[in-house]
Design a protein around this nucleic acid. Sequence first.
DNA 1: CGGCGGTCCTGTCAGC
DNA 2: TGCTGACAGGACCGCC
Length: 291
Amino acid sequence: MPELPEVETTRLSLLPHLLGRRIVELDVRVERLRTVLDAAQLQHHLIGARIEALRRRGKYLLADLHHGQVLLIHLGMSGRLSIDRQTMPDLGKHDHVVWRFDDGGRLRFTDPRRFGLVELFAAEGELSHPRLRRLGLEPLGEEFAALTLRQAAAGSRLPIKTLLMDANRLVGVGNIYASEALFAAGIHPQTPADRLSPARWRRLATAIQYTLNAAIDQGGTTLRDFASAEGQAGYFGSQLQVYGRQGEPCVACRQPIQRLVQSGRSTYFCPTCQREQRGTQGPATRKLATR
DNA sequence: CGGCGGTCCTGTCAGC
DNA sequence: TGCTGACAGGACCGCC
């Protein structure tokens, strides 16, 4: 489900409910997620802890606790966080972890496929944390630019779409936004990364930021069941140009959108607007440039 | 180190 | 209606 825009939407919608709140209760109902949760350890460190900040790194959410521990949450493929004030235990079978706060609020981690993650680590270990230490460029960070993106690619010959989804190089871009950004940049998804010209790296960097920011503005993409912590669906789905649109006409040139499989994942693209050769500039790109 | 395929898990949908 | 297979927003692991 969630790529960077959905995780950021979740973070922003959680902030007003969590900042400064103290955890008074924790219910681990299902321990076997991507890893087996240590319920006793979570209880021990979380009960009584106050949340001082809620950050995002790639697709990870990090809640800083006053006593120096950090709660790390990943939504995996189907995870969701939601806030309510229910006092009755009206929980579904996929509500795996439930927090109660000192203001009566309740946070649920729901995840049918259980690819998500909930774990705790000491703040001083963040830089060396095995899940965080190798993460790549933050696409909405200050250091992100065509040059740093190209440096992250490090001469790789990987197809550019596969490279964009490699979290060790660039974080936050998943299967939807990789296709969308490449369409916006007019670049064919199978182009070997080392064959992109400097001009195309610039166009790609711009397209990635543009696409992610536009999606955040719309509250993310709700394909099936994504929603913010307050239950709000995301509206970027209606603005997807290629993802999931196999056979439908390209918004720019009316040619049918095609689907292919790269590293086991579906890629959607317009064979006319997206080219491997340098110098071709698809209609989509001109549209982007005029915004 | 790089790159690929398989795997974790449940749900939904198309096709027969 | 019921069954089967394909596919789904992510990431890790082992193998070559």
